[in-house]
Design a protein around this nucleic acid. Structure first.
Lengths: 209, 209
DNA sequence: GACTGATATTATCATAAGATAATTACTCTT
DNA sequence: AAGAGTAATTATCTTATGATAATATCAGTC
C-alpha cells in the first residue's frame, strides 16, 4: 500500500506551451469562442505531481479541476478497514476533479493519486463557476463532460452487476491495453472489485485455457 | 419474469393540470423563465402506462424524456442468459429517458417498465434539443440533472465495490423505505446484484439477530 | 552479484453466493 | 371456499472469492 502523504504540487510557468493542449481537450466537449479562451491564461496554473503523490485526498474540501497533460492517475476510495477500491484511471487529455461544489457540505469521499510522474494544468472550481456565469459555452461544456462521465459510470454499473470477475478482467485488458503494463495487479484488482490474490488465481486459470 | 410486450401508451388531454407539477419538477434543476415555460404546453404530451408495460425496451432507438407524475418504474437490463439487473427505480417527480442521442448509433441497452399504473408527461428528445438551442437555461437544466444522475451512479459504484450484499440490502431499505412494500423481492434482488434466493436467505439470517 | 523491499503467485481453509428443486405462503378469480 | 398461478422460503450441493500465510519473482541499490 502507498504510504506517501499529500504534497503540494510544484508550480511552474510552462502554461503557455500547454495552452494548445488545453484548448484541444476542451474542444472535445464544446466550442469555446476565442474571447473565452483568452481568459484562460490568467486563471489556469501549471503544476507537476510526482509518482505516488496525491492530487486530492479523501476528506478534502479542496475544489479544483485539472487537465492531465502527461502521466497517469487513479481515483479510489478507502473503507473503514483500509481496503482500497479503484473507481477509475485517468490519463493525459482527461480531467480530474473534486465535485464537492455540487454536493454542499459534503467531503470528497475519494482520493486521486499519480501512478506516474505527471504534469497538470488546473483551475479553482470557484473560478470555473465564474466562467459558467460569464458565457453559456462553459455550461455546455460541463453538460457534455458530465454526460460522458455518467455514461462511463452507467457502463461500469452494468459491468459490476452483470459480469463475473474473469469477464471484467478480460474487458479491462481490452479497454485499456496500454494500462496493463503501467498499473500494478493490486490496483487492477481494486478496480475489478476483487483481491490481488483472486486476480492472480484468475490469471493463472486463464493461462491454462 | 414479466412477459408483457411494448404497448403504445394512451394519449390523454390532461396536460394542463400537470403543468404545475412539471414546472415544479424542472425548477429543482434550473430557473426556467416564464417565456420558456409557455412553450412547453405545445410540445409536452400526457400519457398513461399500465403496470407491467414498458416506457422503452432494450434495443429501441426511441428517444424521449418523460416526467413521472404518478407511479413507479424500474430501469433494468437483460443479459444473454435472460438474467435481469435493475439499475434504478424511478418515482413521481423524477425523469426517465433513453439517452441514445448522446451516444450516436448505439441502441439503448436497458428497459424501463412500470411497476404500478403510471401517468407521464413526455417530450421528444429532438424537441428538447431544440429547446437547448433556444435558451441556455435548458442546457443549465440538463447539466444539473446529469450531475445528479452522475452522483447517483458514483454512489452506486462505491456501494457495489465496497459493500457486501447484506449491507447493500440494509442501505436499500434505509434509502427507499416506501419502496419495499411495492417492489417484489425479485426486483430488489436484481437491484442488489444477487439472486432472489440469496436475498431470501439473507433476510432470514438478518431476522435471527 | 548479493541484499532489500515490493509484487506476484501458490496453497490451504473458510465463507458467501449461485443453481436447482421442493415446499410454503400469498393473491386473485370463480 | 377451492384451485391456479405467482412469489417467497428453505434445503442441498457446487463454485467463486476472501483471508491468511508461505514462497517466488522482480527492481533497485550498494
Amino acid at each position: 500500500m502507498w504510504l506517501y502523504h499529500y504534497k503540494m504540487p510544484q508550480l511552474n510557468d510552462s502554461f503557455i506551451e500547454k495552452k494548445d493542449f488545453l484548448v484541444k481537450s476542451l474542444g472535445q466537449y464544446a466550442d469555446i469562442p476565442a474571447d473565452e479562451i483568452n481568459l484562460l491564461a490568467d486563471i489556469f496554473k501549471s503544476r507537476n505531481i510526482d509518482k505516488g503523490f496525491f492530487f486530492l485526498q479523501q476528506g478534502d474540501h479542496l475544489s479544483t479541476v485539472a487537465l492531465i497533460c502527461s502521466g497517469l492517475f487513479r481515483v479510489f476510495c478507502t473503507d473503514l478497514l483500509g481496503n482500497e477500491r479503484t473507481l477509475a484511471f485517468r490519463r493525459a487529455g482527461q480531467f480530474i476533479a473534486g465535485y464537492s461544489p455540487y454536493i454542499e457540505n459534503r467531503e470528497i469521499w475519494y482520493s486521486i493519486q499519480a501512478l506516474e510522474d505527471a504534469e497538470l494544468i488546473f483551475i479553482n472550481f470557484s473560478d470555473y463557476l465564474a466562467l459558467e456565469k460569464r458565457h453559456p459555452c462553459w455550461t455546455e461544456l460541463t453538460k457534455n463532460y458530465m454526460t460522458e462521465l455518467y455514461i462511463e459510470k452507467e457502463d461500469r454499473e452494468r459491468s459490476l452487476l452483470q459480469e463475473d470477475a474473469s469477464t471484467r478482467y478480460l474487458n479491462f485488458k481490452k479497454k485499456y491495453p496500454c494500462y496493463e503494463k503501467n498499473i500494478s495487479q493490486y490496483h487492477i484488482a481494486s478496480y475489478l472489485g476483487i483481491t490481488p490474490v483472486s486476480l492472480s488465481r484468475l490469471r493463472a486459470s486463464l493461462k491454462k485455457d
